[in-house]
Design a protein around this nucleic acid. Sequence first.
DNA 1: ACCTGAACACCGTTCAAGT
DNA 2: ACCTGAACACCGTTCAAGT
Lengths: 231, 231
Amino acid sequence: MPPGKRPPISRRDRPTKPALTRQGIVEAALSLLRAEGLERVTMRRLAQELDTGAASLYVYVRNTAELHALILDELLGDVDLAPVSAAGEWRERLVAVLWSYTAVLVDHSGLAQSALVTRPSGPGYLHLVEGVLALLSEGGVAPGRAAWAVDLLLHFATSTATEQGIRSRAIDADDEEDRAAAALLGLSPETFPHIVALNAVLLSVEGAERLTWGFHVLINGVLETPRPESS
Amino acid sequence: MPPGKRPPISRRDRPTKPALTRQGIVEAALSLLRAEGLERVTMRRLAQELDTGAASLYVYVRNTAELHALILDELLGDVDLAPVSAAGEWRERLVAVLWSYTAVLVDHSGLAQSALVTRPSGPGYLHLVEGVLALLSEGGVAPGRAAWAVDLLLHFATSTATEQGIRSRAIDADDEEDRAAAALLGLSPETFPHIVALNAVLLSVEGAERLTWGFHVLINGVLETPRPESS
DNA sequence: ACCTGAACACCGTTCAAGT
DNA sequence: ACCTGAACACCGTTCAAGT
């Protein structure tokens, strides 16, 4: 077949290349995230996945930060908001929602990091805020105080998720960082080998207890601490 | 002068190239940080500053993360720990220390971010932990609870610094993110132009009040919330 | 032992040129 | 209007080869 003008062939021969849309880009990014992790959700890699050039994505997405924010909000749809309208003590239900939020983020701690830097703004996030506000209101927290509290609570959950994500690595007894961690745990360097075992506990049972404790500290503190007069 | 073997010339003609040392690298990194910001403290840029190749730095520094951790700890020497042993109410002195820590980090929010991801371990950080523990002990917080509390307090300060650093930018009424921020503040889109003014307040007076409130929430919550029985 | 150039395998973003 | 190749200006890290 000679070169030159060829008849516009039907799309069927390249079924993996649908027209670009903002939603399609976000979906591709999400599947790339699940397949290869956030660090590979780059403009170039994503474009490759979509069978185009990186430059094309800039028609739909302002920059990488916006792309990540879009993914995050999509993921936030997985947060379990059922406890908001369930039966039971409001404190416990609030902790359940915060746990769910943290759990969703912890699998993709890079996204949590971006949530810390660029406050989320999509529908997923707004639903979450709404739910937390409802629970605080049920708990009798005045609106002004609740507005600050919801920020404080979500901020704490977000930063915990950021922190946790990276901690999932082996402890190395020669590593200076790990030595300091051991010191903080009150372990003398002699008993060092034991941290390996301890660390697993820290990430599971004790880690969980600490986070729950943190949530309760925040909730009790909010109940106990009025906003300053002036504002 | 013909090429070939030249006599080893004295170092005096290149006074800016001292031998590489770990400390020298950290100092150069620190001055680069102050001059150009964290985003330019890269292995390549730093090597250039030290008149060598990036590969040479790997003799002294494991990787970029370690480099940043080293810088951070150096900076932590600037935290004002005087309130630890000053007169006055322990709560207020604790808040003062936390404020100082936050202030040091907020100027370099990228470093705060790295502190969130890689828990600091150097002497600067350990002194800070020591000071906070001393104040909590003075406040009658039991050691076990204090151990968790110091983490909670510093973690909150660190993540607040991470968050604040980026917020120092103009509000754009066309920006979706800013629209959501306005919504959260309870402003209808009609009153939108006013956020520009409001934003300044938020970053100064109200922002400061919120952070102080957050610290007090944490402190009151810690006093109010025992650690779970099991651990 | 320490240092290095060069290479490998990537990045984000812009822009002129095409359709 | 949408899409793109190519370019610009970078990255971190490794490694063989030098001194």
